[in-house]
Design a protein around this nucleic acid. Sequence first.
DNA 1: TCCTACGATGGACTTTGTCTAAGTAAAGTG
DNA 2: CACTTTACTTAGACAAAGTCCATCGTAGGA
Lengths: 138, 138
Amino acid sequence: MSDLLERLRGRGWRLTAQRRVVAEVLDGDHVHLTADEVHARAVERLPEISRATVYNTLGELVSLGEVLEVATDRRAKRYDPNAHRPHQHLVCARCGAIRDVHPSGNPLADLPETERFGFTVSDVEVTYRGVCPRCAAA
Amino acid sequence: MSDLLERLRGRGWRLTAQRRVVAEVLDGDHVHLTADEVHARAVERLPEISRATVYNTLGELVSLGEVLEVATDRRAKRYDPNAHRPHQHLVCARCGAIRDVHPSGNPLADLPETERFGFTVSDVEVTYRGVCPRCAAA
DNA sequence: TCCTACGATGGACTTTGTCTAAGTAAAGTG
DNA sequence: CACTTTACTTAGACAAAGTCCATCGTAGGA
């Protein structure tokens, strides 16, 4: 975490209270918060932080590659701080719970050259959908 | 196409001009329109069709399994009429162009049992991202 | 300590989508 | 063919998610 702040500082980031709080909120594994959720948690620590700042900071973290934007949900974007270990997502179709998962093999390799149509393919996003044990029991 | 209308009729659909137009607009390969684009094209043929009807009809087509909702874009949902042949999507990160692609193997099989955490996994959505030849040239 | 450019703020605005009450018409019935 | 039922459509209000902008504040260097 503090290494994240160090990295950001190294990139010329001005280290404000707001940015620190956003970074802290995003710390941890299996964290997939929406911008509004990040804002809600940030407000607990820094009541006057604005929505615009949260959006700005999240956008900056994404373009620096420190945080991933994931679209598991068809509504709000979610922000995943686990950007440095490649992984995919498993989503419960009922309750929306999200788990990080690690499929075997590299999904990028599954796209043959003949199916690339001249694109330079650099990234792949995989979302598995199903029903989690808790929803299945209920 | 007309077989789609037949199928819908068979399911007890009341066949209105509006629904017919929406179905016609969605006909074809590599069609990935947003709801608003569908509406815009529908209006050309049936000027008084409302946005609400387009949304309703698209939602019905999706729950009947005749059309897929895809979230390649981080903004609006896109509707893909090619629901009966499994495929994935390749998206240009610059211009947003979308191609249907057919990876080798079944992506669902790449998720080992140990990575399923008790979920009943039923579906997988794969989005490849890259730069299309036209954007690369520009 | 002071300055200044970068960042934060709140509110207006946009986009995408949902909901509702009232009107309209598809398709079955006689 | 006219009638009736009720599913469907409509316009517009509403909501959620996100962007933009003018203004103010402050981090961090001189």
